[in-house]
């Protein structure tokens, strides 16, 4: 399946979804006014990937900022990953946050408590 690669902009994140490598990455800022439009291809890609996932999928989420409009879409991404996990495939979620950014750590904990896959919380120290 074709990878999904999207270059980042000041308001949208860099996306790298690579089915062959089993890697799902979202990095940067996610603060668009209309996040549904941006996230739809990501959710659609995962829906397809879900049919034939790798034994192990590694998910790296490293966001500097995200708005509440994105937060629902990010949950949709996680829900797809949860379905893969439920189908007995290994899914590792790495949630990166910058040093001292308690809000971002807490945001990761919120998602973890909703989707019930353990997150690895990784602090980025400069």
């Amino acid at each position: 399946m074709e990878p999904l690669i999207i270059e980042g902009t000041p308001k949208t994140p860099t996306v790298r979804f690579d089915a062959d490598a089993g890697i799902i990455e979202i990095k940067g800022r996610s603060i668009p006014e209309n996040s549904v439009e941006f996230y739809k291809p990501l959710v659609d890609w995962l829906e397809e990937y879900k049919k034939n996932p790798k034994d192990k999928t590694v998910v790296n989420i490293q966001l500097e900022y995200f708005n509440t409009s994105s937060s629902k879409c990010i949950l949709d991404v996680f829900k797809k990953l949860e379905a893969i996990h439920k189908a007995k495939h290994d899914v590792e979620i790495n949630w990166y946050y910058e040093e001292d950014d308690e809000d971002m750590l807490e945001a990761g904990e919120d998602y973890e408590s909703i989707i019930r896959i353990p997150f690895k919380m990784i602090e980025i120290v400069e």
């Binding site: 006014e33 209309n34 996040s35 549904v36 509440t68 409009s69 937060s71 629902k72 879409c73 949950l75 807490e106 919120d110 408590s113 909703i114």
Partner: peptide, 26 residues
Amino acid sequence: LKDMYKFILNHQKLSEKGGGGLGLVD
């Protein structure tokens, strides 16, 4: 507030405008 945020996040659909009612809680 944390509970309210998580509840809205998990249960309410995004409005057409995309807001979804989370902004003020956040």
